[in-house]
C-alpha cells in the first residue's frame, strides 16, 4: 500500500473580522489524506476556504486548531531549518504565475536562486545544469533561462512556476487554481504536463479548482467544500457521477458540458435556484438555506461528515439516511 504524503486533521482557521465585522470562519474542521503519488482534488465555490487550506498545508499560515504533516513530519510556520526541510517536501503553485516570479530576474536566475537557498546543485555549473533539466522537465527549452517574466505567455509563466516548485524535488505539489487564468489549449498543456510528471516522478498533488471538469480529469479522490467544511468526499467518479450531497449535485449539474446533447440530457427536469445570500446560518447545516431537501433537523443540527461504504463520506442528514436505506452504489 502506498504511504501517506499529506495528512491534515480537524483544520480550523478563523480570521479576525475587520471594521467591526464578525470573525470569518474560513475553515471549520477539515481533515484530509493524500497518498504518495496520488491526487486529491478540492472543489468548491469562491470563498469556501480552498486557498486558506492550501496555505495551511504548506505552512504559510498557522491553523487556529488542528494540524498537518507531510511525510509524517509536522507542518510548521516557524522560520529556520524546519521550514526549509518542509519546503523540500511540499510546494505551492499559485493561480497567478506572475505573482511568484520576480519581474526583474530572468527565469534562469530565479531557478538558480532557489537551488542556492537550499544548497542544491554543485557550484554555479551544477546549478546551471540543473536549471536546464528543470526547464526541460516542464517542456520549456534552455533558451527560456534568459527570459524575463514579461517575455512569457501565461502558459509559459505557469510552467516556470511549476519548475520553480520542482527545483527542490518535493514529493507534493499543492496547485491552487493553476489553470484558471489560462486559455483552453494552454490548459490542456498544463494538465498533460502534470499527469506526465506524476507518472515519472511519483509526485502527489493537492489540486484545487472551481472547475469541475479539470478536477475530474486529474483527481483520484475529491473533497467537495462548502463554507469552510467538507460536505462530500470519495472517488472522483462516484462523487461526480452519483453525488450524495445536494450541493455536489447542484455543482456537477451547473457545469456546462461542451457537448450539446449531453448537456441537455443532464439538465432535463432540473430547476435552477434563485440567488441567495451566502451568509452562514447561525446553526444547523450551512447548506440548508439553499437546500431542496432540507428538513426540520437540518435547521438545528450541523451534520458531521459520515463515512459510508466505497470510500465515500457525506455531511448530510438526508443523504446518510437514504444511503443507509438503499446502500450507496
Amino acid at each position: 500500500m502506498a504511504g501517506v504524503a499529506v495528512r491534515g486533521w480537524d483544520l480550523v482557521k478563523t480570521y479576525r473580522g475587520t471594521g467591526g465585522r464578525p470573525p470569518v470562519r474560513a475553515l471549520r474542521g477539515v481533515s484530509l489524506e493524500v497518498p504518495s503519488g496520488g491526487t486529491l482534488g478540492i472543489v468548491g465555490e469562491s470563498g469556501c476556504g480552498k486557498s486558506t487550506l492550501a496555505r495551511l498545508l504548506v505552512g504559510l499560515e498557522a491553523p487556529s486548531r488542528g494540524g498537518a504533516e507531510v511525510d509524517g513530519v509536522p507542518v510548521t510556520t516557524r522560520a529556520g531549518d524546519a521550514r526549509l526541510q518542509l519546503a523540500r517536501r511540499i510546494q505551492l503553485v499559485f493561480q497567478d504565475p506572475f505573482s511568484s516570479l520576480d519581474p526583474r530576474r530572468t527565469v534562469g536566475r530565479t531557478l538558480a536562486e532557489v537551488l542556492q537557498v537550499h544548497r542544491l546543485g554543485e557550484g554555479a555549473d551544477g546549478r546551471r545544469q540543473r536549471v536546464t533539466e528543470l526547464l526541460e522537465m516542464v517542456a520549456l527549452g534552455t533558451r527560456f533561462a534568459d527570459r524575463y517574466p514579461h517575455e512569457l505567455s501565461g502558459g509559459q509563466a505557469q510552467r516556470v512556476a511549476v519548475a520553480r516548485a520542482l527545483a527542490v524535488q518535493p514529493g507534493v505539489l499543492v496547485l491552487d487554481e493553476p489553470t484558471s487564468a489560462l486559455d483552453v489549449s494552454v490548459r490542456a498543456e498544463l494538465l498533460n504536463l502534470l499527469v506526465g510528471m506524476q507518472d515519472r516522478l511519483g509526485l502527489a498533488y493537492v489540486f484545487i479548482s472551481h472547475d469541475v471538469s479539470m478536477i475530474r480529469h486529474l483527481s483520484d479522490r475529491i473533497l467537495v467544500m462548502y463554507l469552510g467544511k467538507v460536505v462530500e468526499a470519495g472517488p472522483y467518479d462516484a462523487v461526480l457521477d452519483r453525488p450524495l450531497h445536494p450541493y455536489t449535485e447542484a455543482l456537477a449539474a451547473a457545469v456546462p458540458v461542451p457537448d450539446p446533447g449531453v448537456d441537455a440530457e443532464r439538465r432535463r427536469g432540473r430547476s435552477v435556484g434563485a440567488p441567495v445570500d451566502l451568509r452562514e446560518p447561525d446553526r444547523g447545516c450551512p447548506y440548508q438555506p439553499r437546500c431542496p431537501l432540507a428538513e426540520p433537523v437540518c435547521r438545528e443540527v450541523d451534520p458531521d461528515l459520515g463515512a459510508l461504504p466505497g470510500g465515500r463520506a457525506v455531511a448530510c442528514h438526508v443523504a446518510v439516511r437514504q444511503a443507509g436505506a438503499s446502500g450507496p452504489s
Binding site: S185, A188, L218, D259, V262
Partner: peptide, 18 residues
C-alpha cells in the same frame, strides 16, 4: 479546440490534444 478539452467520454488522465 474541442480535442483540447476534457469532454464526456475523455478517459481519466488521458493525454489531451495540445
Amino acid at each position: 479546440l474541442l480535442a483540447s478539452l476534457p469532454r464526456p467520454g475523455t478517459a481519466h488522465r488521458a493525454t489531451l490534444r495540445q
